[in-house]
Amino acid sequence: MIERVGLLVAAFLGWIGEVSVFGGRALREAWRRPLELDEVARQVFEIGWRSIPLIVASGFAIGVVLSLHTRASLERFGAEAMIPAGLAIALVRETGPLTAGLLLSGRVGAGIGAELGAMKVTEQIDALEATAVDSFKFLAVTRILACMIALPLLTTVMDFSGIVGGYVAETAVTGISFWLYFDRAFSHLQFSDFIPATLKTVVFGFIIGTVASYLGFTTERGTEGVGRASTRSVVLASILIIAINVVLVKLIFFFYPD
């Protein structure tokens, strides 16, 4: 039993080590020519633009729900005027970045894992290499970069959709005007709420891209392996995001004590 657990732990640590090496290599290779900017742009389109409907819809729904909760708690203190600000702070500081990260790891992580996995088992990755293309740069680095670029932008989009959702929920109760709501939402936000929280999603993007690409590149055993790469990349990327978020939040508090 203990041996089994020990083996599992060792396997996990080994896995983390390999993924880290993979990610580190991606960061190094990203600066080497050719920069593959076309492919990065293509992936930003796939990862960013195509995620917008999901992000907007989820952000809106989360905004509505958060607004109802904030209302329930702030109403007790007679602080209804703080509802937009409370919602915005919750959204911008934590809910937006984390949810956007998890959603993207679901949508894109699975996609990348499956796509690269399929390319691996059908020898397309070898075919890229045979055409003198650095498959690691062309497939992994571009996707990792695209995730790192897209996620902060998607997070911002999510924050705004959440505020709009909050507005809709709030105006249904109080009939507050959009601009007043919008103004109040930002009334208590500071740069230190917005910028670090949004930029930390660059790290989330890095994790999603790295884990999914790694699992895609190491896919074996045909179609079954492809499915496994896809689900694993969602699960592992989500867990890593949640775990690293704890560290990042702590780190942000260290630099911006509030």
């Binding site: 917008i52 911008v92 989009v157």
Partner: peptide, 13 residues
């Protein structure tokens, strides 16, 4: 996508 994202980011800032 990039423009919308950056624009919203700028609006927030």
């Amino acid at each position: 996508f990039i423009l919308i994202g950056l624009l919203l980011f700028a609006v927030a800032l």
